[in-house]
Amino acid sequence: MPVMTYIQAITTALREEMQRDKKVFILGEDVGKKGGVFRATDGLYEEFGEDRVLDTPLAESAIAGVGIGAAMYGLRPVAEMQFADFIMPAINQIISEAAKMRYRSNNDWSAPITIRAPYGGGVHGALYHSQSVEAIFANQPGLKIVMPSTPYDVKGLLKAAIRDNDPVLFFEHKRAYRLLKGEVPADDYVLPIGKADVKREGEDITVITYGLCVHFALQAAEKLAEDGIDAHILDLRTVYPLDQEAIIEAAKKTGKVLLITEDNKEGSIIGEVAAIIAEHCLFDLDSPIQRLAGPDIPSMPYAPTMEKFFMMNPDKVEKAMRDLAEY
């Protein structure tokens, strides 16, 4: 089985979907000739031409809005926001338009667009190249938000997003792009959107997280295993709408739950996960639900001291897991 990086899995999924379906096309800033600032669309312009890999003007609302129009017509646009931080000008198009298209037209129209954006910190990106923006969109029925943690999941979920008949936000951790490698089958497979995935079976504590933090939790779990602490790790994969069943099952399994996000704590995805567990698992819990998250400051500062203070890492995760195990 081929081994590839997280970003190679993105390019592979895009290429295969464009080969499979002529209606799939890419639009975004610098995605064509340059192949994207992170090179996620590397080689696609050469293979599919300028009509299917569109270098757009620097205007995010138009990227989303033009994509939505093309999707309403029946094409399958994959729009790239150069950084998740720069999705803000497109929020009206995403929330007022894409998310509500099917609902407001009583199922007459739909907007099957995929919007990809690199998120997350730890790359010296400072306030505006480091943010996690998923919580902004995570109370908008009509949207789906996918945040994969492995190259295998990237390929299967990005294909599923492109084939989905509703709008999907696909957030890729930019530090994972070249950090994470894994086996990715060469065949055409899709993974279900809306389903969480157990990344490690364990009996003592449950960790529920998503994105790059899954990787940190897996690393920490191996260290804890040396001390006889067996961690169960659930990867949300889709952060909206949440896979309630999987969350409840994972929480009940050990009765001790740690929720992790790289985002600011208050109002983040894991607050909703905590609420689901509180509603359904009160008598199964052996400790208070624990949350490990970024501080409630606007974003990740540039200076390495402050960036490290904000950013999640394996040490912070290991400590939180150990504390919970000892509760």
């Binding site: 138009a62 939505i68 129009g69 093309a70 029946g74 407001r104 037209s105 129209w109």
Partner: peptide, 22 residues
Amino acid sequence: SGSSPVTTQLPHAVGVALAGKM
């Protein structure tokens, strides 16, 4: 289909035209 925040339909029309051209 249209909404209440004004002018959001303009990029949609551009997108339909783009699709037609493609």
